[in-house]
Design a protein around this nucleic acid. Structure first.
Lengths: 236, 236
DNA sequence: TCCTCGTAATTTACGAATTAATATTGACAC
DNA sequence: GTGTCAATATTAATTCGTAAATTACGAGGA
């Protein structure tokens, strides 16, 4: 099973119910506006009322369902779901039915946020942030297998967001990481020879030089290349 | 009390506990890493274990706390909090101790996302989206009091994000709206004569003309003016 | 010094009772 | 005869007190 659940940690029996119910709602098995029959669910899963209840409470917190006395527990309209929640992002992609549209949107957001983040990082990066970027860079250079390469890539982009000094931007790392992991997964299979080091180094050096324009440009180029690779792979 | 809680709806007794605990944690009354004594809390608030438990379950879902058997329930480090959650944003600003830093960061994110959103909207806006923008525009023009003006402003920016056709961007309306509401609250007191219509109309017409460059530029100018106003007011 | 097992403390789960909101039905007025 | 308002019955969420499961820590032995 999933060992390192970085996001919202839901342990125990009811944690499994949360996953199951979330999957059912996100996949559309239980459609928007449908009422959830709690006693039936209780019987189906063979657990107590409290366990189901606590699971639904978590889903309520994420905007997926809404419980009203006497009327029942409903699935809220999709517009009310907290798609920016780390768990929600994870649930979206952990299941078999990957959603191509959401993946596209994810890359689009990445294309908006990361160049701006690079610009801000160039202006405000502290020594500690540069150090983190250097470490990620070194790991990327010395990576031998795919796993290490992807980890280093993730670490770099995480450090970049942190270097902006903006907490809200830093929180968007979940979006960046999912998009990045998707790209890596696809591209590394087809173009294993591709070297991500030069493009990342250009970003890093621009940040170190406190040159916001160059940093933004370098990041745009990095993303353009990533998009190109992705397009190439999709075509094939 | 709060009547229209747009975000995650937590009704009943335990909903109040959620608010109380969230405020205590966000304000730092209960510091990061502190253990929450559940029996004490139960006694303090005079409610049952289940009520407290369900409240903590919601906070767990938002990354605020983590419960481990035998060790207790802890406040998680700030880096794990889901600041992008609508409830979290609301709780941050509903209390007396407004956080100037987070407000600054909010405006920064707005400055990154909204111009890009305007650009995308110019490319992809459907008729229904343009209609929504028109309605907001008309409401802005005919607004007589501050309340109506702010509502129209919010509606416009919400419609703009929706017009991008990107669900993730649309979800960032919470951030945009909070920043916008803050600006309006401050500025309208000092410069009530200020007319927001022309700048918004320029954005709208650029979108209608499907001119992404003009739309992005118009939005940048709108935000620059907003930032200028804010700076002016802060100085005074 | 390291491994194993027992104990204590705390979360987690259960089933019953309570509370609250809605729909239905009846009566009264128009 | 019809429409509106109020009281009541019904239904599902909410809350409660208690029992069970889990796991970290410490003691004892190899």
């Amino acid at each position: 099973m999933r060992e390192s659940s970085v996001a919202g940690i839901q342990r125990g029996l009811h944690g499994q119910i949360v996953e199951v119910m979330a999957q059912r709602i996100l996949s559309g098995t239980i459609p928007e506006g449908a009422t959830i029959n709690v006693p039936d669910l209780q019987a189906d899963l063979g657990v107590s009322l409290t366990a189901v209840r606590e699971a639904l409470k978590v889903l309520t917190a994420k905007g997926l369902v809404d419980a009203r006395q006497k009327r029942g527990t409903f699935v809220r309209p999709r517009t009310d779901w907290n798609l920016l929640d780390p768990d929600m992002i994870r649930w979206h992609f952990s299941d078999s039915d990957v959603r191509p549209e959401l993946l596209e949107e994810l890359h689009e957001v990445r294309g908006i946020v990361e160049p701006a983040a690079a610009r801000l990082a160039a202006v405000r990066a502290q020594d500690s942030h540069l150090e983190a970027l250097d470490i990620a860079m070194a790991a990327m250079e010395s990576a031998t297998d795919d796993l290490a390469a992807v980890a280093a890539d993730l670490a770099f982009h995480r450090a970049l967001l942190a270097a902006t000094g903006n907490e809200l931007l830093t929180k968007m790392e979940v979006i960046m990481e999912t998009g990045l992991a998707d790209r890596d997964r696809l591209v590394h299979k087809v173009k294993p020879s591709d070297d991500p080091v030069p493009s990342h180094r250009r970003v890093l050096e621009a940040i170190r030089a406190h040159d916001p324009v160059a940093a933004e440009q370098a990041m745009k180029e990095l993303l353009a290349k990533a998009a190109e690779d992705l397009h190439e792979v999709r075509g094939a």
